Computed example of a mutant assay.
Amino acid sequence: MHSYVQIENAGMVFSTKKGKFTALTDINLTVAEGEFISLIGHSGCGKSTLLNLIAGLTDATEGVLLLANKEIKGPGPERAVVFQNHSLLPWLNAFENVHLAVERVFGAREGRSQLKARTQAALDLVGLSHAAARLPGEISGGMKQRVGIARALAMEPKVLLMDEPFGALDALTRAHLQDELMKIVAATRSTVVMVTHDVDEAVLLSDRIVMMTNGPAATIGDILSIDLPRPRDRLALAHDPAYHALRSRVLEFLYSRQMRPREAA
């Protein structure tokens, strides 16, 4: 596997009414092609800020970020973002919401039938063909989030970026979508970077967990490799000592950082 994303000595400083605020410092990370990375840490540790840097939604004030050896400068169709809020257009149905993204990325070089086929394939992938004609207000929260994932996957991104995509869902829906995501990633061989607060979610889904220190001036405190075989079954893992050992490692890191914010450099 070769790296898709390289982050070298990246830092992020925001200007506020109270002066400069250093959100991130000395971030060094390489994400391999096809790898699933989770970013975890306490609130305010810069997880979403780091994801936004990779997405190109904000520019790092220090260092460099590369995608396939090209510097990241602004958003691009090779990176798709799934937010906690599904961000669907309420006046468009599920098919139309996905098709809008497909048309924007592929419309200049593909015909109408090809664009429709891409849209349908993305809905099929997340199991929503039956709901293609429904408006966002007519489907559940979990289904809306699946439309958001379908929209992102339909763009055929090199990197799928997810910012707590299941955070607003109930426990059963969340577990179901986690299982679906594992199947989708296995089928598409996507490279994924996901922000999460959920330790079990991080261990279940990830190849590596990037654990962030507290802010301000947050950085990478440790990186944990999740060497559990795939495909993964959550019920089997519930009785797996290796799973519990990995889960404990993450919890120990988080508890060691509790109420101990990293001093700004």
Score class of each variant (00 low, 15 high):
262 R>H: 15
93 N>L: 09
196 T>H: 03
121 A>S: 10
145 Q>F: 09
177 L>G: 01
238 A>M: 13
85 N>G: 14
166 F>G: 03
183 K>T: 13
168 A>W: 07
110 E>A: 14
11 G>A: 08
263 E>M: 15
30 T>N: 14
189 R>L: 11
141 G>D: 01
48 S>Y: 05
263 E>A: 15
64 V>Q: 11
90 P>T: 01
69 N>T: 14
176 H>I: 06
88 L>D: 07
154 A>P: 04
190 S>V: 04
156 E>F: 04
244 H>L: 10
14 F>C: 05
11 G>E: 08
207 D>Y: 06
29 L>W: 03
25 T>H: 05
163 D>G: 06
257 R>A: 14
230 R>F: 13
237 L>Y: 10
236 A>C: 05
113 S>V: 14
27 I>N: 00
1 M>W: 01
123 L>H: 01
227 D>N: 13
121 A>W: 07
173 T>C: 05
180 E>H: 03
231 P>Y: 15
235 L>C: 11
261 P>L: 10
168 A>Y: 02
118 R>Y: 14
54 I>A: 02
121 A>E: 11
115 L>Q: 12
148 G>K: 04
190 S>E: 04
242 A>M: 12
193 V>R: 01
126 V>H: 00
59 D>M: 10
28 N>C: 12
24 L>A: 05
42 H>P: 08
31 V>E: 06
28 N>T: 08
172 L>P: 03
155 M>D: 01
30 T>K: 12
87 S>W: 03
108 A>F: 04
179 D>S: 04
155 M>K: 05
162 M>Q: 08
4 Y>S: 14
188 T>V: 09
103 E>Q: 14
99 H>T: 02
9 N>A: 14
73 K>S: 13
212 M>Y: 01
61 T>K: 00
60 A>P: 12
224 L>I: 14
202 A>R: 07
171 A>I: 02
237 L>K: 09
87 S>C: 13
85 N>W: 14
45 C>A: 14
203 V>F: 07
114 Q>S: 15
175 A>R: 01
167 G>F: 03
220 I>N: 05
189 R>S: 15
18 K>R: 14
202 A>D: 05
198 D>S: 15
236 A>H: 05
94 A>N: 09
228 L>P: 02
74 G>T: 09
108 A>E: 08
256 S>I: 06
120 Q>D: 12
218 A>C: 10
171 A>D: 02
98 V>G: 01
107 G>M: 03
234 R>M: 09
99 H>N: 15
22 T>P: 02
140 S>D: 04
164 E>N: 02
184 I>C: 00
66 L>S: 07
144 K>D: 07
220 I>G: 09
90 P>K: 08
183 K>M: 10
191 T>S: 10
160 L>A: 03
241 P>W: 07
32 A>Q: 12
169 L>M: 00
175 A>I: 00
257 R>S: 15
83 F>Q: 08
114 Q>F: 13
111 G>W: 10
223 I>P: 07
28 N>G: 12
102 V>N: 00
70 K>F: 13
60 A>E: 07
65 L>K: 02
22 T>C: 13
16 T>L: 11
77 P>E: 01
127 G>K: 04
146 R>E: 06
57 L>V: 03
239 H>W: 12
232 R>V: 09
214 N>L: 00
164 E>F: 07
183 K>S: 12
112 R>M: 12
141 G>N: 06
65 L>R: 00
202 A>Y: 05
